[in-house]
Design a protein around this nucleic acid. Structure first.
Lengths: 210, 210
DNA sequence: GTCTATAAAGGGATAGAC
DNA sequence: GTCTATCCCTTTATAGAC
């Protein structure tokens, strides 16, 4: 993606941008768009407030830049679901990828959840465009497997909704899960139990395992 | 709950309170705590702003009153899960109740989601208290069924997380589901497909149906 | 009890020195 | 490019007339 001959100035610029984006992701994720203040983001980034405006112009532009990056992540996880794949391996791979995303990028997941809760004012076009197209494409693959008797009949789009919900809940509802389980933070143990549960429901529910 | 001899004044007071709470639930649900303004809530309730302060004092008190009511709903849905129940009927009843709640009270679900995303500052005590206790109690019932061989082995608490996620997503992520399905609003058809999908995954995954 | 007017605080954004 | 000081608007909350 990056052209190699990047001057020292451009490098520093990239670093500043990344520094601001990381701080913004964290603050927006837990406070939401309205709840996050530019002052709080600046403090998290260790920079004066005016610096953020120099790099991104407005609060909304900074927020939009984060969503932009987020969408690439969202749309890149379904690669394993292809007509020539084995249904059980494909779905297991997809579920593990989604769960790993919740573990490693919880702020991104929460940011996305906040935006959708608000009615997705900055994301509607992408949801109705790229995401819908991808869901349709992958649903066709699943319908093919069902027609061949390789998988129990299910409405594929609702299966995706269920998988998204079960995996993302470990990021978005982390607070609730942590308090119910009475652990200080979600760790390996909790994510392993989560993966095992989701795999049992999906693979078992679709007659893909004993 | 209400004492019968309620004077006309008290009746009007109750009506005003309900009117404000309904408007506040809707505004807080989509805008979040910070994003919602007392002016917007007042407009939705058809009252001047000062009226809200007269009845509830502060914005946070109004918000807290909504969460209070919400918790009663959350904690009342697991009644069907009892040691002497049939596992499949109990879980089906629970799933249908949770899904019906997403259909009939989407604003309440979104309000809850917003609060948990924020780290549940006003809800931590209840999540670690009443909710945890209830989950432990019902998990013990499920472990009993598993020990008797009436249900496939699963970590009961994570099963609850999965059921909560799959059912609440039809309220919280309604915008995304609507756009992916390309429908103007979620209707009977969509909720029936959702219930069917969740039942297949849970009952099938736990070896409670063919 | 109800409403208008306003006080007090905090927010995004920018001007202008360096 | 970077930072301080500040403008201007919105927001919560209340005072005080009715």
């Amino acid at each position: 993606m990056d052209q190699p001959p990047l001057g020292r100035r451009a490098q520093q610029r990239q670093q500043r941008l990344a520094q601001i984006l990381a701080a913004a992701e964290q603050v927006f994720a837990t406070a939401g768009f309205e709840g996050a203040s530019m002052a709080a983001i600046a403090a998290a980034a260790g920079l004066p407030k005016a610096n953020l405006h120099y790099y991104f112009g407005t609060k909304e532009a900074l927020y939009a830049a984060l969503l932009e990056e987020l969408l690439r992540l969202w749309l890149s996880a379904t690669d394993a679901i292809r007509p020539d794949s084995a249904p059980d391996a494909a779905l297991e791979s997809y579920i593990r990828a989604k769960m790993e995303w919740s573990r490693s990028r919880p702020h991104a997941s929460k940011l996305f959840a906040n935006e959708v809760l608000r009615g997705a004012p900055l994301l509607s076009a992408h949801l109705a465009g790229g995401l819908r197209a991808q869901v349709e494409e992958k649903s066709a693959v699943l319908r093919g497997w069902i027609a061949e008797g390789r998988m129990a009949p299910v409405e594929p789009r609702h299966l995706f909704f269920a998988i998204w919900a079960m995996t993302q809940t470990y990021a978005d509802f982390e607070t609730q899960i942590r308090l119910v389980l009475d652990v200080p933070a979600l760790g390996e143990r909790e994510f392993e139990d989560g993966v095992a549960t989701v795999l049992r429901l999906v693979l078992g529910g679709l007659a893909l395992r004993a």
